[in-house]
Computed example of a mutant assay.
Amino acid sequence: MNKLRDWLTIQPIVPAEDYGFFGPGSVTWKVWSYPTSLTIGFQRAVVIEELDPNLIAAVDKTSDIYKRPRTRYDRTLRYFAMVAFDDSRATTHAADVLVKIHSKAIGTDPVIGGTYDANDPASQLWIHLTAWHSILVAYEKYGPGKLSPAEEAQYWEECAVAAELQTCNPADVPRDREGVQAYFEAMRPHLVGSDIAKRAMNHLLQAEVMLPTMPLLLRPATRFITWFLRRGTLATMPRWMREMADLPTGRFLDAVALPFLSAAFTLVSLSSYLELILLRLLSPASVPVAARVLRAVPPTNPVTTTPREAQRRFGLANPRDAHVELRQRQYRRVFGEHASPSDEGLLESQSILGAIQ
């Protein structure tokens, strides 16, 4: 009983230093704070990402999504929540540490040959656009619907601002729906439905692997809900992607999921308390960040800034140019000495993104 009471209790919310990079008037807050975003939207993103052979090579090498899927999901979700909602100091430091973490995600691609590097600007652009596009797709399909033309233009401008936290060039971020579609079409010949990609995608579509161990009495209901989440995520994916990965393409089941999920998300969106309780199931580490937005807790300094301005203020480099010596050292270890990369950054990240285990 005490454990259940603790789980249902929202801890006191600590105000942020500032509004970060977007704030309450942003389309990012409007879209990302809706319950479709960190559920189906995020699940869609991490599933589609695996079609990039370089990305799945890094993912498969560590096997973290199989060994500790809940922890990996929780930490990744917290980072994206920080980008959207957290203050400028915390988020720029998180992005800086992420460059260190990615410095160890290098190696030889077992599917297409050549090398991969998680800090490669092209890989970072793929991850960034897949996430922002997936969040919007889920919002449109299962949430309030399409944004106005002005809101959508603002959304992609804000997506480009967020790209300043990555190693990619913000100028490469498309600024409209047509540009985003053109990007994915250009990527299509480079994507591969390899065996390791299919395995990862099927694994990540099982939402239950992201959840804590459920009491026996709740497991049937959990399987029911996670089936709808899986089906709902599949229904947002282009058919060519699903065919590439040998995923189900049935239109009937896609249609079955739509009214149930739309109604469920509408219901959840009516209560910030319910949103936070459900978010705790998926990503406990994201709750302190999202709670400030969902509960409208103002920061101590109600201003916004840009990642570039924050990086200068806090003495951090543009991610593209950050930690060059460490990245070169990792390259020498992996490709020159044929040794494992060091864990620099990974241990440091625990105080920012949550525990590894």
Rank of each mutant, 00 (worst) to 15 (best):
D109I: 02
E140T: 13
V111Q: 04
R188L: 10
L136E: 09
P174Q: 07
G107S: 08
Q206C: 08
D172H: 12
Y116T: 03
L136Q: 08
V161F: 08
Q206R: 12
L165H: 11
S194I: 03
A207W: 00
A207Q: 04
A200I: 10
W126H: 11
L205F: 10
A150F: 05
S148R: 12
M201N: 06
A171Q: 14
I101K: 01
E140H: 10
D172R: 11
K104F: 06
I196M: 15
R177Q: 08
W126V: 05
N119Q: 01
N202G: 15
A162D: 05
I112M: 13
T213V: 15
T115W: 00
W126D: 03
R188Y: 10
W126I: 07
E185S: 11
Y116H: 03
V173I: 15
M210P: 00
L136M: 13
T108H: 08
E140R: 14
P121T: 12
E140K: 12
M214A: 15
P170Y: 11
H190N: 14
A197N: 09
A207S: 14
I101V: 15
I112T: 13
P189T: 10
E178L: 01
T92M: 11
Q154C: 12
D96T: 08
L205C: 12
S123P: 00
Y139N: 02
G143M: 02
H102T: 00
K104I: 03
T130S: 12
G145N: 09
D172N: 13
E157N: 14
A186I: 02
Q166Y: 15
L98E: 07
E185Y: 03
Y183C: 03
E152S: 07
V173A: 02
V180I: 15
M210W: 03
V97K: 00
P121E: 07
A182W: 02
A153P: 01
D117A: 02
T108F: 06
A186T: 08
A150D: 13
L204H: 08
P212Y: 04
Y142L: 07
A182R: 13
A160Y: 06
D120I: 06
M201G: 14
